[in-house]
Design a protein around this nucleic acid. Structure first.
Lengths: 121, 121
DNA sequence: TGCCTATGTGAAAAATTCTTCAATTGATGG
DNA sequence: CCATCAATTGAAGAATTTTTCACATAGGCA
């Protein structure tokens, strides 16, 4: 095997790159939760949720345990919250940046303001 | 517009989910770098690198400035390092987990050890 | 101007990921 | 054993992303 580290990282981020999977991880930050509740909270087809849960399970970021007639999911480690926080910080910056850019564009009805960081050529 | 936050997050992570893009971000953590150097460091076709740089630029996580006849890229914000660190922490856990599991499987030639967290049904 | 190097772009083909549906497994109660 | 509820699986088609190639653009220099 021996996957280069940067590829493992890429796979890891790709595993996070889906709205439903993000929501699941966020919900699980408040503690373990049965599929039933995830399903109620997320607005996704049952079967689709299962598929996304399978992706999370395969990566090992969550674990699943059967309890009587339901299956309960939980985060496999505590560090996920850190990651989400770091991501939120950057994302906030990026979105703020976009907002600024948008305003510049709006103001730039007259006189032609240059690009801030976007396209290069 | 008004994209739900969890979708913005998913898009953000997806933007990170490519080996070349990861390497670029890692390289840029040591400071700005011209395309030429990225190209020398990464083992990717010139044109493919351009495409991946375009993805990063569009998201706003890097900026590009023309200097004489080369284009120099830089991280747009300082927080990227945090994110990478958080990701590395989790990833380390996950990979360690896989190694453990692998060992269990290897040992389990005799007597059938139960699943640790993997498949559920 | 015309050529050269460095980089970017558009578009088609190839590869991957998502969604959806039917069928399946597991546990529980009759 | 059968019916039922909860959840998962496999597979096909739809949608998205990656890769690649030919061509475009920018700057520097003869």
């Amino acid at each position: 095997m021996q996957v280069p580290l940067y590829q493992a990282k890429a796979e890891f981020f790709r595993m996070l790159g889906h709205p439903v999977r993000i929501r699941v991880l966020e919900l699980l930050q408040d503690g373990p939760m049965p599929v039933r509740d995830l399903l109620a909270a997320i607005d996704v087809e049952r079967s689709n949720l299962s598929q996304q849960l399978a992706v999370l399970r395969r990566s090992g970021i969550v674990s699943a345990v059967r309890e009587a007639d339901t299956v309960v999911y939980a985060l496999a480690g505590p560090d996920v919250a850190d990651l989400m926080r770091a991501a939120r910080r950057i994302l906030t910056e990026l979105l703020a940046g976009q907002r600024d850019l948008l305003e510049e564009l709006r103001e730039a009805d007259t006189a032609d303001g240059g690009a801030t960081s976007g396209r290069v050529a």
